[in-house]
Design a protein around this nucleic acid. Structure first.
Lengths: 350, 350
DNA sequence: CTGTTAGCGCATTCAA
DNA sequence: TTGAATGCGCTAACAG
């Protein structure tokens, strides 16, 4: 439209043109840059005359405060990092992860914080993140499915910044609050459902041992079956994926004829179990009932819709964010658990 | 071990204890802080004597350079932002997204950059991110599935920072390079496959119109069917989700009996189509063949395994990262396309 | 209400 | 090789 559109001088990407600073705005507005700073930060001691001329100057000069400088001066970044620890890439793709990302982002954004998510999946990325944390990269941290013995967790002990955990581990020494689902009760409830329907001999496929959720769910299963618990019908998966379910069924092969139910630590594993069971000639739920956990999109997608335990991941993310915000606001919150409910969802697989 | 371990003064989370700075290290090491800075930045003009004493001092004091200060001084952040634009939360959960996140993170990390991912899904988050970009939040940006007419994209025009796009739009005016799959060829190939197998009357379900990939795939379909293209058998979905596939089939109801194939813009839509077709009494592929696109995990999960087009999302992420790194290294790269191959995967649905 | 001043923690000249 | 000085862009405390 106007001549200023000509700024399309594509030079080198390396030499950014002189950025407009707070002083430019000040001189343009005819005030000192201290006043501009006050205006920017909502300080009330700014005359409306100054305010309007500053506003005009800002608009005219396309001024935007520099992030690093602001962070340095006030020693806070207005950034919250969501750190997600993944073994397999597939983990990030879980619906629960994206729901948490999205809802936490929403809640934090409303409060004026920018959420950034970092992936910790290798030694290198982990140590890079550790260094970032120590260099005050963010004002607070949400640790998603972080194993407690991780080298990263110890960093937060010294970081002196608010932290919230997405999983609750009774045995953990970490002094941080957690928001977690009623994994134990959920797993117990669905197991009890199977027992009530007459299933007697149940196998359990546990999630990876480093996961508190996996442990808590196993606990729920054990409570439900009580003394009938048979260690030879317990399989520890290495991850939460479909292939682990398939593998588990192969392991259970000698016992398969005597089984009438397989309780799985999550939906993906359950899908794998159903698939493999099918290949080996067993029918679900006719021969063997199978249950999942999570009520992920997968639950509706298998040939046999999953009977599973639902958890509200959006609420998880929102609650995590809120808990962090409270700390960011100055509230001191130590190790404690906010427990979110789970709900039995009965479909076809059991 | 020593008395300094007593720093466990848990006070308030708001008053971080005096951080150890470069000066502390300097005085501890008995040199000036300029020397410490040089040491830190790998400057060769540091005597080995100074170096060792500085190293010791750093270790002893647990010193970690402050991020904001460093960024301010050298005017770069060593951060790359992956900005993903999502309509629905489910979009983040796509395997392709997580694969890109992970592989780009890996590649950038190896090069010394920290990748952070930002979610742009609301007006508010979008404008917050826009402000960040203008405030030099990151050194470079990967724009994932960003619509071209978005208010955000214009921000990058003025940002003067390297940008890469995850989708190629011929008509776009954006001067940024893109890495994209051979969407057009892929869709054409799978359509041709249907035609070769004797399917004559094909419907097409297009992805959302704001997506260049959706447009490119549609184009591939049209090329394959040529003059046989029937606009009444074209459905524009609002998103990439299962429900859109179901909806499309309902829309096609009057024509269903005359159809013998439905080509879908992605796997999720195809799943929805298969589901809905089943409910309405049609058999896949017996009555109507259905094809997907992406070869996502879903492709293997439906009752009828999907015949689809595979794309390597890890490679996508890696290539995006590499392209950005080249720019970060000073290379000037304008609007251009790096095209990644796609591959026909034949299973059961067609 | 506003201008001035002094840092925030670090990189980078310039001398020495 | 190293110390000292200056500045990155902004906030905040202090006068006025």
């Amino acid at each position: 439209m106007d001549a200023s559109t000509q700024q399309t001088t594509p030079k080198s990407t390396l030499t950014p043109p002189k950025k407009v600073t707070i002083r430019d705005v000040a001189s343009l507005a005819g005030v000192s840059y201290g006043t501009v700073s006050r205006y920017l930060n909502g300080n009330e001691h700014v005359s409306s005359a100054a305010a309007t001329s500053i506003a005009k100057a800002i608009q005219h000069s396309r001024y935007v405060p520099n992030n690093a400088a602001r962070s340095l001066a006030q020693r806070k970044t207005q950034v919250v990092a969501l750190i997600i620890q993944v073994e397999a890439d597939a983990t990030i793709a879980q619906a629960s992860v994206s729901a948490v990302m999205s809802s936490a982002n929403q809640t934090l954004g409303d409060a004026g914080f920018q959420m950034v998510t970092l992936i910790a999946n290798t030694d290198q990325s982990t140590s890079r993140i550790a260094r970032l944390v120590q260099s005050d990269f963010a004002d607070g941290y949400i640790l998603f499915s972080m194993s407690n013995d991780d080298s990263l967790t110890t960093v937060f002990l010294h970081a002196n910044r608010p932290v919230v955990l997405s999983e609750y581990d009774e045995d953990s020494e970490l002094p941080f609050p957690a928001v977690d689902f009623a994994n134990e009760q959920g797993q117990q409830a669905i197991t009890q459902y199977l027992l009530d329907r007459g299933h007697k001999r149940l196998a359990y496929i546990c999630g990876p041992g480093y996961s508190p959720s996996a442990i808590n769910r196993l606990r729920g299963f054990q409570e439900a079956v009580g003394t009938a618990f048979d260690p030879s019908l317990l399989f520890y998966a290495d991850d939460w994926e479909i292939s682990s379910g398939e593998l588990a069924v192969v392991e259970f092969q000698p016992y398969l004829d005597s089984l009438d139910g397989v309780v799985c630590a999550n939906d993906s594993i359950a899908i794998g179990v159903i698939n493999q069971l099918g290949r080996m000639g067993y029918r679900v739920p006719g021969d063997i009932a199978v249950t999942g956990f999570d009520d992920s999109p997968y639950a509706m997608m298998s040939e046999c819709k999953l009977t599973t335990v639902r958890q509200d991941s959006s609420r998880h993310g929102k609650t995590l964010a809120e808990l962090l915000l409270r700390q960011l606001a100055g509230e001191a919150i130590g190790k404690q658990l906010i427990q979110l409910p789970t709900e039995l969802v009965i479909r076809q697989s059991a």
